[in-house]
Design a protein around this nucleic acid. Structure first.
Length: 796
RNA sequence: GCGAGAGUGGCGGAACUGGCAGACGCGCUAGAUUUAGGAUCUAGUGGGUAAAACCGUGCGGGUUCGAGUCCCGCCUCUCGCACCA
């Protein structure tokens, strides 16, 4: 009876066959105990890479664990398949974007299936296919009907290669994809979602998301950027010039006003003043990153003044590009005494500085200041409010302003509305018809989807959407008056497509509705969502926003998409460098699976580090995993009908406890594996019963091998249809412990004792220790500390 | 600049509410076995010493019987935001 070779190839084939025949991962139509496991779906660019391998490996392990725990699991996959690379490939290789996309999906799916991932493939979605994007259009119309989609002109980021870019896609003034410098361009009619209306909810509800990492919540809080303050109306020759400030208590210190170059007043002034016009032109031509590069602040005086409503003073009006047009009202009140940026600006242009907040020690004088004083203090030079301390000054001024009708309390957010129009071909068409008479009209639901014309060959158009050049696509009739009209030529940001895919999984083949509300009630919210943290402020915020919108509209049972979020770490090469095609250091999942087998690759991945940490992909990890797998294989084959020793039994129950806790909690499979290894090191001869348990514990981590060993042990059916091992606290408990004897905190001896030995007895036994006896030499110890089950420290 | 997180052997990483630092693995050393091995098995492996003592969790202080863990002050690295009024 020799042990058969561990041949991963035949085992994998067998496993695939077995699971397919048993339809193991089909979603239960009427779950009694649901678990919705979700991983971020993939963009189909070429093949699956090692980062996906990690992400989906973790999700698969959790899915299999939950199945064994008796849950009915929903676990599906899809493709975020609209987007730029398909167009780029089309231009470069002359393949149609759809063809390129579908080809990549086929390749990617094969790799995922080879990995044996536990997806219910019947629910696969492809966002660029009409049966999916029909409902993306439906979603757009839902927002439109609820007043949450509107059209406005927009100064957009413009990349010479990739066209319009969302702010999030501009990194250090460069395009996230092609690295070209990004400029600005005015686009007339852009669609926006009223995202910022949800800022407060998106912020406040973070407090309810207990299962989200604090770091992600913090990133979102900063991104939303709430700040409390007030608006103050200054007077500009009869016009209101409103500013937002968080420091109304410094309003008496205003010595100038600044508007952003993009502000309408700047344009107005420019008409009569060539100097201002020239400045604006130059400022707008600057690249974003040049403006942002801190330090020198330049601007231009308009020659005009504005009146401070609190003291009636006339102050100079400037235009300067350190003012951000899209934040607040695009106007800043210049308080050089108490704001560092205003200070720098005032110094440069010789604008007066006035102290209106006196710090605790007093003695602050405008003439000798080297920087603004931004701390707390007492108000001075502020009329009736002189003597008020800072914390009281702010509300006092706000109240005063409100009473006089000169201002109002205001909470401002950094979060801006979501610009969803893209002037691209390969995206979801915006389902709007523009009628000269009736204005923009939503396409009636019965006419959805508005199909993307596939015969298109032109994918780039200078400064406008390529679809605008397709007369057949553009031709439409107004749904309201029946007159000839035009379609909207834009497509949507792909973040719209990815904001709701997890709802579609719930009922992916529904042709009459995006999903059935009852099914949504059954499965939602998602129990665990796994993906990379790079999506913290984009996808993950849009995803929450859309959930809230759909919840308000009665389509969802919850207004948060997922209970728990888990961010896996990135995978780097052995040198710690990001893998990339250009660096030539890409580890292909297919290559390593061929060489080592799926299970060994998974085990190596899991054992490298905790799931949230970054890992460096090294071959040595595979060697270790290989040995471990081989050892398990041999030991299970050697299992006999023997009695387990008490020690082995105890260890096994401890391991069950440990592994279960990792799956339910931190997903630290590295320590789960370490625990299993410890058990194997302790128990060289496995009993059939402990081998059975061992195989079950290993099944979520190394599914193919476990399935084979399960059969080999003579058990019927699939290991994934059995129930997860349970542990017995009694059996797991240590009966004996080693107690350390310390002398003044240093280890000097040790003895074993029953775990439940009383403190008194432990103390007595420690004092009998020869080293202690010697040190005491008959004297009484100063102090004896007993830590039950651990140590006794004798202080002399 | 602001915010967050992290610094532990040659390497990846363990360490519950403060209680034996270095689990588990890689690598290395020695031995066994083998025609051979990136195979398997056994023993060892933080520094230091003949053996002890002693020294060791980025650095400097502190609290404590006892600190990788708590407090204060630094240094370094990673990530996020970045003229946000």
């Amino acid at each position: 009876m020799t042990t058969p070779k561990y041949d991963f190839k035949s085992i994998e084939e067998k496993g695939h066959r077995k699971w397919r025949q048993a339809n193991l991962f089909a979603t239960h139509p009427e779950p009694r105990k649901k678990y919705y496991m979700l991983e971020m779906f993939a963009y189909p660019s070429g093949d699956i890479h090692i980062g996906h391998f990690r992400n989906y490996g973790i999700g698969d392990a959790v899915t299999r664990f939950r199945l064994m725990q008796g849950y009915d699991v929903l676990h599906a996959f899809g493709w975020d398949s609209f987007g730029l690379p398909a167009e780029n490939a089309a231009i470069k290789h002359g393949v149609h974007p759809r063809e390129w996309t579908l080809r990549n999906i086929t390749t990617g799916r094969q790799t995922l299936q080879r990995m044996g991932l536990s997806y219910d493939w019947e629910r696969e979605v492809v966002t660029s296919e009409p049966d999916y994007y029909k409902w993306t259009q439906w979603l757009f119309l839902l927002l439109y009907e609820r007043g949450l989609a509107y059209r406005a002109p927009s100064l957009v980021n413009w990349c010479p290669n990739d066209g319009i870019l969302a702010n999030e896609l501009v990194q250090d003034g460069r395009c996230w994809r092609c690295q070209s410098e990004v400029g600005k361009k005015e686009i007339e009619n852009c669609w926006f979602f009223r995202y910022s209306d949800f800022a407060a909810r998106l912020l406040d509800d973070l407090d309810r998301l207990d299962g989200w990492p604090e770091t992600i919540k913090l990133l979102q809080r900063n991104w939303i950027g709430r700040s409390e303050g007030c608006e103050i109306d200054f007077d500009f020759g009869g016009q209101k010039l409103t500013v937002f400030t968080t420091r109304p208590d410094t309003t008496w210190g205003v010595t100038f006003m600044v508007v952003a170059p993009e502000h309408p007043i700047a344009a107005e002034v420019a008409q009569t003043q060539p100097k201002v016009a020239a400045y604006i032109q130059q400022a707008l031509r600057k690249k974003e990153w040049e403006r942002i590069a801190e330090g020198e602040k330049d601007g231009v005086f308009t020659g005009l003044t504005v009146t401070n409503p609190l003291n009636g003073e006339e102050v100079q009006l400037w235009v300067a590009d350190y003012v951000v047009a899209t934040y607040g009202t695009g106007v800043v009140m210049g308080v050089p005494g108490h704001d560092t940026r205003d200070f720098a600006f005032a110094k440069r242009y010789g604008i007066p500085i006035r102290v209106v907040i006196q710090p605790p020690g007093n003695g602050l004088e405008a003439e000798t200041m080297e920087d603004a004083y931004v701390g707390e203090g007492t108000m001075v030079n502020s009329g009736a409010l002189d003597g008020t301390p800072t914390p009281d000054g702010i509300p006092a001024v706000i109240e005063y302003l409100a009473q006089k009708g000169l201002g109002r309390p205001k909470v401002n957010y950094r979060l801006k509305d979501w610009l969803v129009s893209r002037q691209r071909y390969w995206g979801c068409p915006i389902p709007i018809i523009h009628c000269a008479e009736c204005g923009p009209q939503g396409v009636p639901e019965t006419e959805l989807p508005v199909r993307l014309p596939l015969e298109q060959t032109q994918f780039v158009a200078e400064g406008r959407s390529p679809l605008a050049d397709n007369p057949e696509f553009m031709r439409a009739t107004c749904p309201r008056c029946g007159a000839p009209a035009e379609r909207d030529p834009d497509t949507m940001d792909t973040f719209v497509c990815s904001s709701w895919y997890h709802f579609r999984y719930v009922d992916a083949r529904n042709e009459a509705a995006p999903w059935d509300k009852e099914k949504a009630k059954t499965w939602l919210p998602v129990d665990l969502y796994i993906g990379g943290s790079e999506h913290a402020c984009m996808h993950l915020l849009y995803f929450r926003f859309i959930t809230k919108v759909l919840h308000d509209a009665g389509w969802l049972p919850t207004d948060e998409p997922t209970q728990r979020l888990f961010n896996h770490g990135m995978v780097y090469d052995a040198q710690g460098l990001l893998m990339s095609k250009s660096a030539g250091n890409v580890v292909s999942p297919n290559a390593i699976m061929s060489q080592w087998g799926v299970d060994v690759c998974r085990l190596a991945m899991f054992f490298f580090a905790p799931s949230e940490d970054e890992i460096r992909w090294k071959e040595t990890g595979l060697v270790g995993a290989q040995r471990f797998a081989q050892r398990v294989w041999d030991r299970v084959h050697d299992a006999r009908d023997v009695e387990d020793t008490r020690a082995a039994q105890r260890k096994l129950h401890q391991v069950i406890r440990k592994v279960t806790a990792s799956f339910e909690g931190d997903l630290h499979f590295n320590t789960s594996m370490a625990a299993i290894m410890e058990f194997m090191n302790l128990s060289k001869q496995l009993s059939r019963s402990s081998a059975t348990t061992l195989v079950q514990l290993l099944a979520p981590l190394a599914p193919f091998m476990a399935e084979e060993l399960w059969e080999m042990l003579g058990h019927p059916g699939s290991v994934f249809r059995t129930s997860w091992p349970t542990y017995d606290e009694e059996l797991a408990r240590e009966e004996e412990v080693e107690v350390v004897v310390q002398l003044n905190g240093k280890v000097r001896g040790r003895f074993t004792a029953a775990a439940d030995t009383s403190e008194e007895d432990l103390r007595a036994q420690a004092l009998r220790d020869p080293a202690v006896q010697k040190a005491l030499s008959g004297k009484e110890p100063r102090k004896v500390i007993v830590a039950r089950g651990r140590l006794v420290n004798v202080v002399v």
